[in-house]
Structure formats: structure tokens, C-alpha cells
Design a protein around this nucleic acid. Structure first.
Length: 467
RNA sequence: GCGCCGGUAGCUCAAUUGGCAGAGCAUUUGACUCUUAAUCAACAGGUUCCGGGUUCAAGUCCCGGCCGGCGCACCA
């Protein structure tokens, strides 16, 4: 059976539903339209047939009468899932369903596979993720999550464009993987006969653009981290990073809470949301607490980056954490915070003043040189964003990289690699700048009440099927 | 990577203690001029994820493997 190469489509289901909302039962509009989409349901009744047509805007009923529709016999032989183009008058049936009264139709494509049970859809995770196209047809929640993801990114872009941020793109293929603490994927360039790493963060490139005079930049793009897959981790995920010259971390915290509030209001119409059955308010401003304060409250005694390292280590061991020899007081404090506090941070909160030891790209605090002007926002027990006043001093940056190199030498395969080109860039002068990173996938999970990151990624990473 | 759980018709799911592998939907055929997951009747549909083993007998028990979910580890 040959199928057409195009269809003179001129109407959408959603538009028809609103335009003809006032059409009364049994009334005919006199308007003929061409609609197209997928047949989702079919109800035959002798010389009548009703079908439910779905397009990208919604659904509308097709009403076929053998006396009116050309080729009525074949209309009733359409399969669920077939794509059709239909020409007919907009009417409302006697029983009140807005319909296109079929005058002629053409099958645009045949569905050889079905889309699961018409009531239960497709629920098998393996099938849903390996054949997401079928999942999207079968499951409204899947369509909704990916549509909201698109909306989130649109709102972020508009928000930042309105603030004169420029959207830029930086390399994904890098000679060294840096800008974050993570193991990279490796690949090879044949013509250059060179080893490359897929980026783990765009951070350093973006700051080099600030050095070059782009005072406000952002990038939304994929980053790759060679780590385990879990309900909250996909090996490739989408990071939004932005940098603004002349800002410090407090300015950046204001941006984050306002932007997230704006996203929630634009997309959900409210800042009051439910995640996995628990209420959360995303309303700005969010509380700000230092890591040392939160850790102190949790352990019931005053601890900070100035606490004796061995004492912090013993507090960790009491809690069953294995303490590595390379960890200083800063790393110990951070681990203590993660062990005792992180999972309990349900409503949005900023955790600030991370130790220098675990923040190799952050600028030291004006208050205390052992901690940095860094923040992480937490929500539903997870990190939502990470930002800081950027370290702009090339000499100090080199010292920090050298500390990282020592960690790497001690066996930490996630320690940051030294980037000479970045140090050279800082020597040309990075103005006071604040930076931010937000994991888009996790933000979308929050806004779509998704418990698994795969739900908000069109084609999540799956293990290839063995033979 | 480790632990727990799961995989039965195209889809959603049953199958008692180890005892003939089933239903609904989809598909096919037939009936039906206002249906709404239409209804009714009939036909057909199986490597019970794969490979071994125990047993008179395995979807069910044992071993190994594959894929997935959840937890841990790693991390954002």
C-alpha cells in the first residue's frame, strides 16, 4: 500500500476543542478541516465508526458514517497507532463529543507494532527506556516529563537572555578533563593520533571567555562522567553553567533562588510543589547556613575546618565512614556534613563556606582563608546547584592545582588535573566573577515529581543488550 | 562493582504444595446507525529471558548467565 508524501494539514485537535467549545450537541459547524495524527481508539458500530485521533496538541474524535465517508470499509480497518490524515466537517455528536465528520481519509503510516494495552499502556521499564518512542505514545506522564524539560530550558534561556547573558558553546573533546572532580570518558582522535577526554564540566572554558571580555556567559550542554548509573545518575547529563563578572557568591545565590522560583511559577504556576509525596516550597529567598554550622548541629558539638583533623576523623569513624589518609580537616568536615546533614535537607537551603581543600576553583572567604565563598543549594536531600566566587589569582590557582596533583599521586583518580592553559588565562586577568552550575536533569526531576532520572531523559544510557 | 527483587502471548497481568500454561486488551473473522477503555460472538496467538541441573513431572526448586527496578558504593 502506497502512502502519501505529504498531507495538507490545517487544523489541530487542541485548537478545535477550544474554538468549537460552544458547538451544541448534534450541531454542525459547516467548517471543513484537515486534521492528522495517530488513531488511539476505534469504536465501530455497524454503519458508524468512531475513532480517537491524537496529535501534538490533544485529541479529537473522528466520526465516520458509511453514507458520508468515502472508503468507509477501510476506515474501520485502520489499526490503533496508525497515522491518518482526515478531511471533514467539525461537528458535535448527539452524545456531545466534538468530532471531525469524516468525508475522506488517508493512511499516512501504518503501525505494525502496537502501543501496549490501551488502558494500562506500557509499564515494563526495559521496554519503556529502550523504545521510548512507544513509551511516549502509551504513557502521558512520559510525554509530560519531556515536555516540561523543554519548558524548563526555554524559561532558563529567556531568564538569562533578559539579563544580557550570552549563550556560548565550549569544547566537549578536551586534552585534559577538568573543572570538576570526576572520572572522564576517553576517546581517540585518529588524524591527530591524540587521546581526548569527553568533558566533565565546561567551567574553565567559560571563565576564559570572561577573561576575553564576555562579562556574562552561560552554556547549557551535555557533560560526561564515567561513573555508576543510578536513579539519580546518568553517565551523560545536562549541565547549565553561568558566569557573571563583578558578582560574588551572594549575588549568585540571589540569582539561583529567583530563577528557580521563576521556573516553577512559569511551568507549574506555583512555588508550592509535591515531591514523592512530600511538600516543598521553592519560594525565594532560601535560608543560608554554613557547612560548619550544619555539621556542628548534627554532631552536637562545635566543629569547623579549624577543628583538629584527628578529632573530625574520629567523629567520622564513629559513624562508620572510612577516613582516607589523604583527607585533611576540610575534607573530613565535608564528609561529616554529607554523612549527617545532606539527606535531611528537604526544603531548599544554601550550604555555604566549603573548605578550601575541597574547592580548588573557589575564592577564599574574606572572613576566613580556610573556607571559600562557595555555596551549594540542596533540595529533597540532594544537591541542586553549586556556585562560588571564582578564584581569580593565577598564583593561588597553581597552588590549588598542585594540591590536587598530590591527591592524584596519592591515588585519588577524581582529583582535578592541572590546566596550564587555564592558569595562563588567569594571568591575563579574570575580573571578580561568580559562577554557577545546575544539573538540569535533577531540576526537571524535582519539577515533574520524577524519582528516576531516566524519566526526564529522552534516551537514557542503558546497558547494550548482549548477544 | 556488591546486595535484594523482578522477567509468563504483541501489551497488562494470573497460574495453590512441583502436577494439562490462562484472562483482559491488541490482531483476525462476524453482528451492530451516536460510541467514549463501546458492546456481543468466534478464531488465532507461548523457546514461561537464556543455558545447565534435580525430579516420574519444573513457569515454580538448584547453579551459571543476560536485562531491568531498588538499595549500597561512586557521584551531580
Amino acid at each position: 500500500m502506497t502512502t502519501p508524501y505529504s498531507f495538507a494539514h490545517n487544523a489541530y485537535a487542541g485548537d478545535l476543542q477550544s474554538t468549537y467549545a460552544a458547538l451544541t450537541d448534534g450541531e454542525e459547524s459547516g467548517v471543513v478541516v484537515n486534521v492528522a495524527g495517530r488513531i488511539m481508539l476505534m469504536r465501530e458500530q455497524g454503519k458508524l465508526a468512531f475513532a480517537t485521533l491524537r496529535d501534538s496538541t490533544g485529541e479529537i474524535q473522528l466520526f465516520a458514517l458509511s453514507a458520508v465517508a468515502a472508503d468507509f470499509e477501510n476506515f474501520t480497518k485502520l489499526h490503533l497507532g496508525d497515522w491518518v490524515g482526515v478531511t471533514g466537517q467539525v461537528v458535535r455528536t448527539k452524545r456531545g463529543e466534538l468530532s471531525v465528520k469524516v468525508e475522506s481519509f488517508v493512511r499516512l503510516a501504518e503501525a505494525l507494532n502496537n502501543f501496549g494495552d490501551k488502558w494500562a499502556g506500557i509499564s515494563d521499564f526495559d521496554l519503556r527506556y529502550r523504545h521510548r518512542e512507544a513509551d511516549l505514545v502509551a504513557n502521558p506522564a512520559s510525554r509530560d516529563a519531556l515536555a516540561k524539560r523543554s519548558d524548563v530550558i526555554r524559561v532558563i534561556r529567556q531568564y538569562l537572555w533578559d539579563m544580557n547573558f550570552k549563550e556560548v558553546e565550549t569544547p566537549m573533546l578536551n586534552a585534559i578533563a577538568t573543572g570538576a572532580a570526576a572520572r572522564p570518558f576517553t576517546t581517540h582522535h585518529n588524524a591527530l593520533d591524540a587521546k581526548f577526554f569527553l568533558r566533565i564540566a565546561p567551567e574553565l572554558w567559560l571563565k576564559r571567555l570572561v577573561v576575553g571580555g564576555f562579562e556574562r556567559v552561560f552554556e547549557i550542554g551535555r557533560v560526561f562522567r564515567n561513573e555508576g548509573i543510578s536513579p539519580r545518575h546518568n553517565p551523560e547529563f545536562t549541565m547549565m553553567e553561568l558566569y557573571s563578572a563583578y558578582w560574588d557568591y551572594e549575588d549568585m545565590m540571589v540569582l539561583v533562588e529567583n530563577m528557580v522560583e521563576k521556573i516553577a511559577v512559569e511551568i507549574l504556576g506555583t512555588t508550592e510543589i509535591t515531591y514523592q509525596g512530600r511538600e516543598i516550597s521553592l519560594k525565594a529567598p532560601w535560608p543560608r547556613r554554613t557547612m560548619a554550622e550544619l555539621a556542628s548541629e548534627a554532631v552536637g558539638e562545635e566543629v569547623s575546618v579549624h577543628t583538629d583533623r584527628e578529632h573530625l576523623a574520629s567523629l567520622l569513624r564513629e559513624r562508620g565512614v572510612e577516613v582516607h589518609a589523604s583527607w585533611g580537616a576540610g575534607r573530613c568536615l565535608s564528609e561529616l556534613f554529607e554523612e549527617t546533614c545532606e539527606a535531611n535537607l528537604w526544603d531548599p537551603i544554601y550550604v555555604t563556606e566549603h573548605p578550601v581543600e575541597i574547592s580548588p576553583l573557589s575564592r577564599q572567604s574574606r572572613r576566613d582563608p580556610e573556607v571559600t565563598e562557595r555555596f551549594e543549594s540542596y533540595c529533597v536531600g540532594r544537591e541542586l546547584s553549586n556556585g562560588f566566587s571564582e578564584l581569580i589569582d593565577p598564583v593561588e590557582q597553581r597552588r590549588r592545582f598542585e594540591d590536587q596533583a598530590r591527591l592524584a599521586a596519592a591515588g585519588d583518580d577524581e582529583a582535578m588535573a592541572i590546566d596550564e592553559d587555564y592558569i595562563k588565562a588567569l594571568e591575563w586577568g579574570l575580573p571578580p566573577t561568580a559562577g554557577l552550575g545546575i544539573g538540569i536533569d535533577r531540576l526537571v526531576m524535582l519539577l515533574t515529581d520524577s524519582s528516576n532520572i531516566k524519566e526526564v531523559i529522552a534516551f537514557p544510557t542503558l546497558k547494550p543488550l548482549g548477544k
